[in-house]
Design a protein around this nucleic acid. Structure first.
Lengths: 339, 339
DNA sequence: CCTCCCTATGGGATCGATCCCACATCGGCG
DNA sequence: CGCCGATGTGGGATCGATCCCATAGGGAGG
């Protein structure tokens, strides 16, 4: 009954004609801006409803020069960390009546550039990104599009960021391992130039420094992003003549690699090897023993990113801000004093 | 150097003026449609590049009455199944130069309606949805927007769908349990009105029928969507005087509930209880023993949905089609003959 | 009684890109 | 020499919604 069998979608002009008013009046009636007689307003709205009229967001955007959507660029939706981030952003964006254009690069900066241009073309109100370089931030700033970097920071001072306090969390978890008696604690990390890696490494170091203990630099292993390569590195680490008694994996992918490798080598956890992870994902609470992990609230992270972006859209000239969210330590069975 | 310190973003008019040509010529030079002298074309393109010109997709869309973006509505990004689906859709959409507007309802049909209207407002070229009712399909069809239902089907005959062959897969996995000697096989299912539930139930039944075995209807447990309620149901099932020797969980959330409940009750898997899951997610290969599961290729599912949507956009009047993808059975340690 | 303001409404321009159509130029051919 | 077609280019309308501005009617106050 509503808009049944209509060849084309109704426009505001058709609504206006059907209601016997001008486009201007119809617009005022529908948007609620400006003078309209109450009865005219109701009639126009009724007609619009009957015709199944839905205003064209593109046309509105073009005229108003302000869009109601944000661009979101994440690394990898198959990783629960980023998926949770997307979920948080999505919830919060919807609450604020924004739509979300989502893209995921596979950590590739070529796709990052492509996505950036798409966002500019769509004239999004702002962009949230887990960056892989400083380029996206610089490019979008030049195009006058607000950017919030989330999880990682590449453009400190140039654009807002919402991060987890990687340093303190890494220090805390390392300190915990030291407290229960570990001295040979390996850090398996993706890389050390991004803020995530750098800060987690720094936290790990400062735990040793605070405890006044020497640090065996050979226990810091850079495993990169390739899972297979990481497993080879970890296997080499665990089969050394002087193996670590605990492994601190700097992200969930590396924790998985460490967990599987320990199982393959028949190293009992936590009997022969303690394991902790930065980033808590579902499997860590499913396995026996559970894996002790630093829990980042991804949904809160996403929500904070949206909030920060909205503030930036409101006040383009406000000072740049970096928001730090704290992480919590979830202790499970994978940690015990060394034997 | 490029567009540095420009107050406003460059428009095609500014590019045209800077290149000393008309808007029309600039448009032809940039889009490649129509006659342009090669040297003029190159000059215009060079100028556009220097000005950091990015065409306004909204304006283009308004004029062409055809958008380059698709709407995607999924249930829950925190569930790896939907996240994988999103990843597949995203990849394939990018390949075809489409952008993706993503929304997730929490399985709520109120949000479904809201999202539908947003998609209409944005005049997306098409929509991919994991539906929770037939309403979205009906509404968008009335608005002449192509819809592809994915994973579940509510609008059979009215719009395209891309589904997993739930029936065969469920039959196969049930048959496998019967082969190794199980007779009391419980099916723990979310609900039975959606196609996913209905077809999985049907597959389960037909395995019994094919084997000429009677089916104890009391072993079919409808656990709904609430995780806590599901755990209560499963606990009741497993503590019956005549408990099942195997549990077939119809989705990954229920499998998690079953796995945890079995652990709480101290039921050895697979010694006392065999467990199989429909839907393979990461933790199932991390735990010991691994969980035997029906593996749905979520990425392929997402890609197929995009392909189907693109065909529909090309040929709006082609007959409606339902694409069925097969699933594979991944046998792990959670299944063994009953003791 | 006239002016002024308030309430309502309509006309037309505008946002940025596209594209139809008109027109201009030039070479070739009858 | 004139006409035609091929090659290029520019003007103006258009997509749909918004919003400034003009205008009209009516009531109140001087």
């Amino acid at each position: 009954m509503t808009a049944e069998g209509v060849a084309r979608r109704a426009t505001i002009r058709e609504v206006a004609e059907a209601a016997g008013v001008s486009r201007s009046t119809a617009s005022r009636a529908l948007t609620g801006h400006g003078y309209v007689a109450p009865q005219v307003r109701d009639r126009v709205r009724a007609v619009a409803h009957d015709l199944g009229y839905v205003p064209d967001a593109t046309a509105r955007h073009l005229r108003r020069q302000a869009s109601q959507s944000i661009g979101v660029l994440l690394s990898d939706l198959n990783n629960p960390f980023y998926a949770g981030l997307a979920a948080g952003i999505s919830q919060q964006a919807r609450k604020r009546r924004y739509t979300m254009m989502l893209a995921d690069d596979g950590g590739s900066s070529g796709l990052e550039a492509e996505a950036a241009e798409t966002f500019v073309a769509l004239r999004v109100a702002g962009v949230i990104v887990t960056p892989v370089s400083a380029e996206l931030g610089a490019y979008l700033s030049r195009q006058r599009i607000p950017v919030v970097e989330v999880d990682r920071q590449f453009s400190a001072g140039a654009c807002d960021a919402v991060l987890v306090d990687n340093g303190s969390a890494a220090q805390r978890v390392t300190q915990r391992l030291i407290e229960i008696g570990h001295r040979r604690i390996a850090l398996v990390i993706d890389e050390m130039h991004w803020t995530t890696g750098r800060d987690r490494l720094a936290g790990y170091r400062s735990a040793f420094a605070a405890a006044g203990l020497p640090l065996d630099e050979s226990l810091v292993v850079t495993a990169g992003w390739d899972v297979e390569a990481a497993r080879v590195e970890i296997r080499a680490l665990l089969t050394r003549p002087d193996p670590p008694t605990a492994v601190f994996a700097a992200n969930n992918v590396l924790a998985e690699a460490a967990f599987r490798t320990a199982a393959e080598l028949g190293l009992a956890v936590p009997g022969r090897l303690s394991l902790v992870s930065f980033d808590d994902v579902p499997w860590m609470s499913m396995v026996t023993p559970g894996v002790t992990a630093v829990r980042q609230d991804t949904v809160a992270l996403g929500e904070a990113a949206v909030s920060q972006l909205m503030e930036r859209i409101q006040s383009p000239l406000a000072p740049v801000r970096t928001v730090l969210l704290s992480a919590s330590l979830v202790e499970r069975g994978s940690t015990a004093p060394p034997s």
